[in-house]
Nucleic acid binder design. Sequence first.
DNA 1: TCAAACATACATTCATAATGCATTTATTAT
DNA 2: ATAATAAATGCATTATGAATGTATGTTTGA
Lengths: 149, 149
Amino acid sequence: MQLKKYTDYGLRILMYLASFDADDKCAEPKLATIREICDTFDLSANHVNKVVHHLGRLQLIETRRGKNGGFLLAKQPEDISLAFVIRQLEGDEKWIECENPYCVAMPACELKGIVARGKELFYDYLSQYTLKSLMVKAPQLRQIFSTAS
Amino acid sequence: MQLKKYTDYGLRILMYLASFDADDKCAEPKLATIREICDTFDLSANHVNKVVHHLGRLQLIETRRGKNGGFLLAKQPEDISLAFVIRQLEGDEKWIECENPYCVAMPACELKGIVARGKELFYDYLSQYTLKSLMVKAPQLRQIFSTAS
DNA sequence: TCAAACATACATTCATAATGCATTTATTAT
DNA sequence: ATAATAAATGCATTATGAATGTATGTTTGA
Ligand code: SF4
Ligand code: SF4
């Protein structure tokens, strides 16, 4: 019972982007690159590669190929729901798998419903937070990110 | 992000015991055995063995070795909290691991706290349910369990 | 046309849940 | 006493999926 690193990596990437996004309002924000993220967080380039691609497909970031390419937030931080991000990156599977193999208790089991509602409660709770909620210490984050090797 | 089968097996065992427990109030309830559980749910004997042992250590069931041995509920179903059972069987690790390897964002990261509170919210929600909550269809469960090969 | 950057596909490694096997210990009916 | 039964315990193995690695393709700007 733990979030995948994959999911957390996605959130780190968004936090990274948002922390610099807040920097200059009007100007076109500088694009970040996979290399940059890997250097900052000391992560595997290929893993980050996939997460970035995923975030792109989710339209949370805009990716640009080619020289001087990279990616940037496609929305305002306050419009990026943590519930959405985590649900999508994590996958939305049931927290208990009752088929596969089939459980005889199924027809009369209250448990699966209780756990399913617990899961929804977790996401409901997360839905009150956005990427902006993670930016209360944006200057410190920016400081950390820009000094990290 | 899914509960371990191990955890679900534990809950099935408790449900099994409770469903028959409700049967006769005053008489010493019949003991269930690992073999019985395995036959009913079509599970691996050794896996169930471990879960039963764990439930015993948690004082949720009383185990008896030797001929005519087995196990039975050590408490009333209404005194067995689902939050406790799931937390114990599942293990109580953090849902995001920020050390191992160490994440540079740590000092300024709001995310870890948000997720940790979400986890607690999940368990708070579960704490309003007990094994008895799973017994609303006890007769049907008993029916299923007694007819399952 | 070259180099930089993401896109894509596939292969491999690693962690751990899940399962299997063997033996020991306790209990009780015979 | 003894044999049968059932849980306790320890260790080995397998299966699954996350995590990571390798390779190549594609787009884009200088
Ligand atoms: S016991 Fe209930 S929750 Fe668990 S597998 Fe069976 S039906 Fe699903
Ligand atoms: S980003 Fe925050 S939650 Fe994720 S690992 Fe780093 S400190 Fe922990």
